[in-house]
Computed example of a mutant assay.
Amino acid sequence: MLEFFAGVGLARMGFERAGWEVVLANDMAADKKELYEGHFGPSPHYLLDDIHELAEQPDQVPTAMLAHASFPCTDLSLAGARRGINQGQSSAFWGFMHLLENLGERRPPLLLIENVTGLLTSHSGADFQSLLTAMNGQGYAVDAVVLDAACFVPQSRPRLFVLGVRSPARGSDDIAALQPSALRPKNLIAAMQAAPGVAWTLSAPPDPPERGRVKLDEILDHPQDDSPEWWSRERADYLLNQMSDRHRETADRMIAGKRWSYGTVFRRVRNGKSMAELRTDGIAGCLRTPKGGSGRQILFQAGHGEHKVRLLNANECARLMGADGYRVTTRLNQALFGFGDAVCVDAVAWLAEHWLEPHAAALKAAAT
């Protein structure tokens, strides 16, 4: 398979878990390749190149059954001012489409494209429709699901996955008959039904595991009380005082508890003021790239009449992405940026097994 926008290789880990082999990886970020090779070892198949430049060199791309593309989400999120798929980093999608066009008949029979669910509403749905139409234009019938990493790990990370099949040997195109399900919530179905003239190949993968089965405290390290990872008392109290009344009441109950309990905190600006927002449902918030002062997730541990605060470390963030045991050989922020910009290993492995494999098997059978 081919892995575009490969980052630090978490999609590779998911595909390999499902029995796929990566024969080419591509990204333009040297710091992500450094992390990738720190974990996997020397990787001559990793091409460090801009996708727009690679599109003009199709001979560098080997023939494969599947291509996965997790193109930048920057301009599809609030952080990127919702500029959309035609601007900034998110316009890299068109470089990927151009590469497929230049591959000609060597285009992979299967595509899997991943991005944030904000793609569904970007430019009132026009960007999602443009993506689907572009895939159709390259000969792919399409399908789409939303899968949350919280089905596998204690992190809220819903992501949109769009499947492309060049020769749809199975499935249907009865888009009007779709009903809300664990993988196709109402907003996804509405976006799919609002895309006129799209060629679909709908299939019915099973429901994913129940969300929230794994809890935050199961993936945490437990540094000694005198570890420098813990914030000073003054800094921990300052965070506590940044909480709203509602969140402070929750924190106070945790502090008064007879056992340790855990929550995560992000700082957000509310009405021009920096606030600390506490989450205590056993699921961490979505990992982000650590840009600015609010991108890193904070652990809040409380009980026995006290509270302790520290940042989540690289190993914990790896576990939140389903990449337990990932060898981090770079500085911390570089690792956190790589994980925050990646796709959950378990989500990829599950989709590969339950969604991609049936299509791959049908394509192979049709070719014999």
Rank of each mutant, 00 (worst) to 15 (best):
E3T: 06
A6V: 08
G9W: 02
A11V: 00
E16N: 08
R17I: 01
G19V: 11
V23S: 07
L24D: 02
D27A: 09
D31H: 15
K32Y: 09
K33E: 00
G38N: 07
F40G: 08
Y46M: 01
Y46W: 00
L48M: 04
D49G: 02
E53C: 06
A55R: 09
A55G: 08
Q57F: 13
D59H: 12
V61W: 03
V61I: 13
A64F: 07
A64S: 02
A67K: 03
A69S: 08
P72V: 07
T74H: 00
S77W: 13
S77N: 11
L78I: 00
N86L: 14
N86S: 13
F93G: 08
G95R: 05
F96W: 04
H98M: 04
H98T: 09
E101K: 12
E101P: 03
R106L: 10
R106H: 11
P108G: 07
P108T: 07
P109S: 05
L112Y: 01
V116A: 01
T117A: 10
L119T: 02
T121P: 10
T121Y: 09
A126N: 04
D127N: 07
Q129H: 05
Q129V: 01
V142A: 05
D143G: 00
A144I: 06
V145C: 09
L147K: 13
D148C: 11
A149C: 01
A150P: 10
Q155S: 05
Q155C: 03
R157I: 06
R159I: 04
F161G: 12
V162D: 08
S167Q: 15
D174N: 11
L178E: 02
Q179P: 08
S181D: 13
A182W: 06
L183I: 01
L183A: 04
R184S: 03
P185A: 14
K186C: 14
N187S: 15
N187V: 14
N187H: 15
M192W: 14
A194F: 07
A195L: 03
G197Q: 03
V198E: 10
W200H: 06
L202Q: 09
A204N: 11
D217P: 01
L220I: 02
D221E: 14
D226E: 12
S227P: 04
W231F: 09
N241A: 02
H247Q: 11
A251E: 07
A251N: 11
D252G: 00
A256P: 04
G257Q: 02
R259W: 11
S261V: 09
T264Y: 09
G272I: 14
G272L: 13
M275R: 12
M275H: 14
L278Q: 08
D281V: 00
A284V: 09
G285K: 11
G285V: 06
T289M: 04
G293K: 04
Q301P: 04
A302P: 06
H304C: 01
V309R: 00
R310V: 03
C317K: 01
L320N: 04
L320W: 04
A323H: 07
Y326E: 01
Y326T: 04
R327Y: 01
V328Q: 05
T329P: 06
A335H: 09
F339A: 03
G340H: 13
G340M: 12
G340I: 10
D341K: 02
A342Q: 09
D346M: 06
A347P: 02
A349M: 05
A352Y: 15
H354E: 03
W355Y: 14
L356M: 10
E357L: 13
A362P: 09
K364V: 12
A365V: 11
T368S: 14
